[in-house]
Amino acid sequence: MLEKFAHKTDEELFVYLKSKDRTVSRQAFDEIYSRYANKIYTYCRKVLNSSNMSEDIFQDIFIKFYESVQKIDEMSNVQGYLIRIARNLCLNEKTRGKVVKVPFDESHYEYNDTKIENNEIADILHTSLDALPEDFREVIVMKEFMDMSYKDIAFALDVTVSVVRIRIFRGKQKLREIMTPYIDDIQNEN
């Protein structure tokens, strides 16, 4: 019997993903992919800052995730598990020094605001984000780009919620410090 997976929880999808029936497994995979693909891809792009490398790592993440699912019996936090895999693979790549930074590519972002002022602020913000220390940048990417809760971020990073809260606070304070002069200039020009 074909199942409708759109309303299934992550935990239920995990069970279906382990099915020997390839059709069922495929449907479960499709649903999980639709929920988290953009988040994971965004994470890769923001952490690696490389389009080509991000695509390779992105594939590896889902392949490793699928393989892992077949080996374990229970998964309480699919998103967190995916992020953990993504984080490990991305950090490995960075450690190996394979990552070649490329200029920020605006075409991958869905700008809803056509005002030049806001686009300029966005450019500055993204540049500022790249300038943040890794620990701060990572949690802000997870919070702002991936819309994860402090709790989910804590799970993915294997730290406490307090650590996440402090890192986000300090990261945003850094962003404010970097951005404030630019924002003032833009606002004064207009």
């Binding site: 953009n38 891809y41 972002y109 780009f145 819309d147 924002i183």
Partner: peptide, 20 residues
């Protein structure tokens, strides 16, 4: 300022290429 940061980041999730 924090709200400006928040609103600027909002909806900036990147779409994974379909071929992947």
């Amino acid at each position: 300022q924090l709200m400006l940061i928040k609103n600027t980041f909002r909806n900036k999730q990147m779409a994974a290429p379909d071929f992947l």
